[in-house]
Amino acid sequence: MEWVNVLIQGVLLGGLYALFAAGLSLMFGVMRFVNIAHGDFIVLAAYLMLSFVTFMGWHPALGIVAVVLVMGTIGYLGQRILLNRVLGKDILPPILVTFGLSIILQNGMMEVFSADSRRVSSGALDVASISLPGDLAIGAMPLLMFVVALGVLAGLHVLFFHTALGRLLRATSDDAEMVPLMGGNKAHVFALATMIASGVVAVAGIMLAMKTNFDPSAGPSRLLFAFEAVIIGGLGSLWGTLAGGVVLGVAQVVGAQIDAGFQILAGHLVFLLILVVRPQGLFARMKG
């Protein structure tokens, strides 16, 4: 029974990782663009949540809306003003610019918020759990996160497959050069993609803030988890991302069960193993 518990924990953790991964995957899918600062933006969203709710005392619901709006705006403007200028065949400029952003964000947050680790308390929810027959217990918080992750992915699914914007985004993913010939403004479409991805990043950051302690240097490992979930799931596949997150989450939780110091390493090793035996990922739809 203990192992069932572990498995459930891993699956629920996977939901959070799928949230981390969705934004990264979306930007890569539409623009073939990998944001090295992805994890740092997640942490930025976490700090925004902390500022709004803990420092300024706003209602959490208002805080969530504000974080999503702020992150979405940053995403749209950042893409329009900065990132669109460096997209192209040459992969060095986007990697470098986002690597530079990552360093700037980490150190900027260090200046503003200090290196102390923080957390946004969600009151009774933090410790509440649901007991199931057979000694199983599911934490309310992890469960809520998993449900939120499913909700966000489902929302993205509807957006992609049932709206005109989604159609345009899929078309951009197929052949961005043709988009202007359809009357689409590529710079605007790219910025919208980043805006949506940033909205997802905002939700991921809020979840991070409520789940664990975080500090300004917590970004890179979130980037790596997100990246691993994307690759395990297979490039360009929305639901594959969830599968990737779950595989990673289970690997980490099982690793932690073996030895506390083994949690993160186990996740990385499972990722490398999958890279060796199935480099295209579990549900690939797209070529790298």
Partner: peptide, 25 residues
């Protein structure tokens, strides 16, 4: 051999994962 299974920007992040694996080991 493992890292070369990834391309472009993903190669970059892949090498970072490998460095993390080394660190944790």
């Amino acid at each position: 051999w493992i890292a070369f299974r990834l391309q472009g920007a993903y190669f970059a992040i892949g090498t970072w994962v490998i460095a993390e694996v080394f660190r944790l080991i």
